[in-house]
Design a protein around this nucleic acid. Structure first.
Lengths: 203, 203
DNA sequence: GGGTATAAGATACTATAAGTTTCTTATTTG
DNA sequence: CAAATAAGAAACTTATAGTATCTTATACCC
């Protein structure tokens, strides 16, 4: 055996399918964390995954698709983590904290980069679809209603969407993780007051 | 004279300073409208302005700075158009319509592109600083109070910021101009109800 | 008004990255 | 075991950023 195995583990095997894909996603995350979306290159991802560009391009049409797929392989959807603490306010806080955590992992620059490269599909349709956040908030409210905590008619969609909308706005605009304080403000000064208005109307 | 003046007006003069800058901004806008931020190149802007890349790079460090400057040369700041219709609701609608018009001129892809290339300076600090939108809404509210239309204590900053925040969110996420219907919903279902709560507290 | 400093504009160059093509060969599948 | 599939290497084309060099028109100063 004359192949130089000095430092790196020069692979003898040739990966395929799921295994290869997992290595690609892993490499993509690492590149994303080290250099950020802008400076992530297909070349570097390929190198880090010990593969080559054509392998990437056979699966993904470009950087945007690659990164989006990598994110979707790791970040849970809203449905996968609907909080259920037994109290409406705590649930609302938890919804926003979950979202904050997930968006923070991705980072605002990557989000903007995806919007540039893929258009609104990336955020609206795929990562944080508003429909799903409606659904999540609606579930929380329904449970609160079942507990007798609140009693309300149909809330406007705008209001159901508000927690997620304001969270997205914070992340996209501030380039900073959203503070717990900010989350509390949004819940206590905006969302809960609006919900209470609709309770009052019912009574 | 052997220079070919067949079709184009080959300039004999050499522009400088403000005049040249105006031509550069004009060319930047046209490129922006025709090809969008992504595919706008320094080369093409230079060509359209009948100048050359070094001239651009002497003034602007790159695409982001160039486009930001071009935008700032044309888009009014919030203070320059504080509405004053004599009615609070109409003023609020007008604030949002102004913002919609301005952001629509720029286009969401350009906004995201600027965020990628310049970081949060571009939107937060320079184009639509939240401080200024607070100020605008506060002015509107103060006038309404002076007219005796409402009477309120100090509103939380979050609420003052809400019209602009929700507008930015719509534009950044939807890739579509925001409909008048959506603007009305935001004012009637979110902003005005929250303001009324704080009126009630005062009474 | 004539001489000097400044900066416009042309051209050419380097470097980086996207995306493609071609080819060899390991691995899967039937 | 044979044939089909796809991995991985390498080289190539093209687009664009950003820089360097040079000539000369224009502005400014004495």
């Amino acid at each position: 055996m004359d192949e130089r195995d000095s430092a790196a583990d020069k692979r003898e095997t040739r990966r395929r399918g799921t295994q290869l894909e997992a290595a690609i996603f892993q490499a993509t995350w690492e590149e994303l964390e080290e250099t950020g979306y802008n400076r992530l290159t297909m070349e570097n991802v390929a190198a880090r995954a010990n593969t080559s560009k054509p392998v990437l391009y056979r699966r993904f049409s470009g950087k945007g698709e690659l990164v989006l797929a990598a994110i979707r392989s790791r970040v849970p959807t809203p449905e996968e983590e609907i909080p259920n603490t037994g109290e409406l306010r705590a649930d609302l806080l938890a919804v926003m904290e979950n979202m904050n955590r997930n968006l923070k992992r991705i980072g605002p620059k990557t989000l903007h980069g995806l919007m540039v490269d893929l258009g609104d599909r990336s955020l609206t349709d795929m990562l944080f679809p508003s429909g799903r956040s409606h659904h999540t908030v609606q579930t929380i409210l329904r449970r609160a209603e079942e507990r007798g905590e609140v009693e309300l008619g149909r809330l406007p969609l705008r209001i159901l969407a508000l927690p997620a909308d304001l969270m997205r706005h914070e992340i996209l605009m501030s380039y900073e993780p959203v503070s717990d304080e900010a989350i509390r403000e949004i819940v206590d000064e905006i969302v809960l007051p609006l919900i209470r208005i609709h309770m009052a109307e019912r009574t």
